[in-house]
Amino acid sequence: MTNEGVTNEGVKNVDVTDVANEFDHAAVLERCARGDHDALHQLYLQEGSVLLGVVIRIVKDRGMAEDIVHDACLNIWQRAASFDPSKGSARTWIFSVARHLALNAIRYRDREINIDHSDPAEFEHDETFQHALRVDEAFDWQTGQRMDTCLQELETERRNCVLHAYVDGLSHAEIAAHTGAPLGTVKAWIKRSLLRLRECMA
C-alpha cells in the first residue's frame, strides 16, 4: 500500500484555511524524515498536550513526563523515516513511541520494588474474588469505537484492570493493590481479557 492521499502538496503549503482540516500525521512524519524541523513543531502543537496528558497519567510526575515527551519527540524525529504507513496509522505509531518510553521509565524506576514470582496459572480457577464485592466502574470509558462493545462484554472488574494498565500504566502488582484482587487473579484476568478482546475484535 502506498501512502495515497498523503500528497505533500497540501501540507507544504499549509495556510490558515487548512487548519480546520484533519491533521495529517503521516504527512508530518514524512516531512520529519526529510529533516523539516517545522513539521515536528506542528506535530508538537497538535499533539503535545495530549501526549503529555497520556504520559503524566502513567509516570505521575510532571517533570519526568516533560522529559519523556522531549525524548519522544526526538525519537519520533529520528525514526520518522522508519515509519511504514502500510503497517499502522501514524498517530498510533506516534503515541506508542511516547507510551513505551513512559512505561519503560516507570518500570525502570520501580524495578527494585516489584519482585514478583507468582504464576498466573495457579490462579486460573480463582473466581471467588469477583463475587466477594460489588465492583464499580473505574473509568468513564466509552469512546464510540468498535472496541467498546468488546470491552463491554468483559466483567467490570476485568475491564477496570485492563484500563488501569493501559491508561494509568499500573503493573500487575499495582492493579492488585489498587483493586484489592489477589495478584495472580489480576494476571489471569488480564491474560484472559486479552484473549476475549482479540476474539471479539476478530
Partner: peptide, 22 residues
C-alpha cells in the same frame, strides 16, 4: 493492540506542556 487501545488514551486528560518544553 496499539490500534485497538489508542482510542482509550483519550481517557487521560490533555495537559498543556510548560513554555520551556518546545
Amino acid at each position: 493492540w496499539e490500534e485497538r487501545f489508542l482510542p482509550y488514551s483519550a481517557l487521560a486528560e490533555p495537559m498543556p506542556p510548560s513554555d520551556y518544553l518546545w
